[in-house]
């Protein structure tokens, strides 16, 4: 049987806006992926445990609170600690241009801002997922 791509969609931090995350979740579902939606106000520890137990290929995070420079790298760091650096991590939400190079240097594979077509996210995952 063909291997399904499994994606954790999570909202780290304290903002309560999950519309974008839900739109992405649906787009990935429609692209044939299995999306585990973990909901609002997740700590990096919760997201990482979910990714491990769910044997996820991808962790997609959305953040609008401004805490991305702390929370995104923390998730990558914890995954590394658990020996799960093969999991693709990317983010989206309201993230200033000037923060993107820093996030990428910390292992965030890509950052998608507002207005990104969902197809771009789907294509990105298909092109970069590390085990197929």
């Amino acid at each position: 049987m063909e291997r399904k791509i499994r994606v954790i969609v999570a909202k780290p931090g304290l903002d309560g806006h999950d519309r974008g995350a839900k739109v992405i979740a649906r787009a990935l579902r429609d692209a044939g992926m299995e999306v585990i939606y973990t909901g609002l106000r997740q700590t990096p520890e919760q997201i990482v445990q979910a990714a491990l137990q769910e044997d996820a290929d991808v962790v997609a995070m959305s953040i609008l609170s401004g805490a991305h420079n702390h929370l995104f790298p923390r998730v990558v760091e914890l995954l590394k600690e658990k020996g799960a650096e093969d999991i693709l991590v990317f983010g989206g939400g309201v993230i200033p241009e000037e923060d993107i190079p820093f996030l990428k240097s910390k292992g965030i594979a890509e950052v998608f801002g507002p207005g990104t077509p969902t197809s771009a996210t789907v294509e990105f995952i298909k092109a970069h997922v590390k085990r197929g």
Partner: peptide, 24 residues
């Protein structure tokens, strides 16, 4: 599409970091 949104875990995430619990 063959895809899925798996949303049960959402209600159980409070147990995510408990080593005595495994949710799949």
């Amino acid at each position: 599409s063959g895809g899925a949104i798996l949303g049960d875990r959402l209600r159980m995430q409070g147990h995510a970091t408990d080593p005595g619990v495994f949710i799949r």
